[in-house]
């Protein structure tokens, strides 16, 4: 009894320590977002008093964060939607259908995960220029899709391959064709894995900086991570405004995570494919 209480206590202590470890930087940025750079320079860890809520307005309207936010949302939501649909369809094909070259395609996709994206940066830049897609959100979206598709297919293929073949056979006998089976069976049953890739892709692309800074030149087309950079000068960094910008940009990630992690846990506990 005593040892159980101790082990529970120990677990609680670890969880509290981890939460503090993970939560403190967030809280710190949160407090900084409501303080001016001068106040922060005076006391790094001070509590915001008074809280400068107007900074959010300044960032949103005067520093064009509304435009950056809209650009980020359009590119990332669009890309994630395409990645999810195409990725799950491809993963389903690779996991379920036997055709010549199946494993070759899988191997090529898998090997492209290993390469660091920086390697293709210049080639991608050249290609986009050739196709008049440089400095467009469409171009950036296409690059995002191609960057994240292999990993998405890889993750989903592993999950889809574990869905019992009997379910597919039962659906076939019940009268369903290949496309209907994909939409009515694979997508709903694979939802836990799909939710995982949605979260992963959304967070990765929402924070993506390298391709966004190289492939977009027009200020009106910039995404949030590049927009935050505007507060960084060569000699002066507006820490307070950076924190405000970061808080604006982090909000959708938190919302997406909260929504989909719920789905993810639901999917896992409902489980029982058999």
């Amino acid at each position: 009894m005593l040892s159980r209480a101790f082990s529970r206590g120990g677990l609680m202590a670890i969880l509290v320590a981890y939460t503090a470890f993970a939560g403190f930087p967030f809280l710190w940025v949160g407090t900084m977002s409501l303080r001016t750079t001068t106040e922060i320079a005076y006391n790094h860890y001070g509590w915001p008093s008074p809280a400068h809520w107007a900074k959010f307005r300044t960032a949103w309207i005067d520093s064009a964060f509304n435009t950056y936010f809209a650009n980020s949302a359009a590119v990332v939501i669009g890309s994630v939607a395409v990645i999810t649909l195409v990725g799950s369809a491809a993963a389903h094909c690779l996991a379920r259908y036997r055709f010549p070259g199946n494993r070759l395609i899988y191997f090529i996709l898998f090997s492209s995960i290993i390469l660091p994206p920086q390697i293709v940066l210049i080639a991608v830049y050249q290609t986009l220029v050739e196709y008049n897609l440089y400095d467009t959100l469409w171009g950036l979206g296409l690059v995002y899709v191609s960057l994240q598709l292999p990993l998405t297919i890889y993750l989903l293929e592993g999950f889809f391959a574990r869905i019992p073949q009997d379910l597919f056979d039962a659906a076939k006998v019940d009268g369903y064709g290949d496309f209907e089976i994909f939409f009515r069976l694979v997508l709903p049953v694979g939802m836990p894995a799909i939710a995982t890739t949605v979260i992963l892709n959304f967070i990765l692309l929402w924070n993506e900086f390298l391709f966004a800074v190289v492939l977009i030149a027009d200020d009106d087309l910039r995404t949030l991570p590049v927009g935050i950079q505007r507060f960084m000068g060569d000699h002066f960094q507006d820490i307070g405004m950076i924190a405000t910008g970061v808080m604006i940009s982090v909000l959708p990630v938190v919302v997406v995570y909260a929504f989909f992690s719920e789905k993810l846990i639901q999917g896992m506990t409902a489980g029982a494919v058999k």
Partner: peptide, 11 residues
């Protein structure tokens, strides 16, 4: 057809 694993649609 009735399958050994029942093959009920879990969702």
């Amino acid at each position: 057809m009735v399958f050994q694993s029942y093959a009920l649609y879990p969702h």
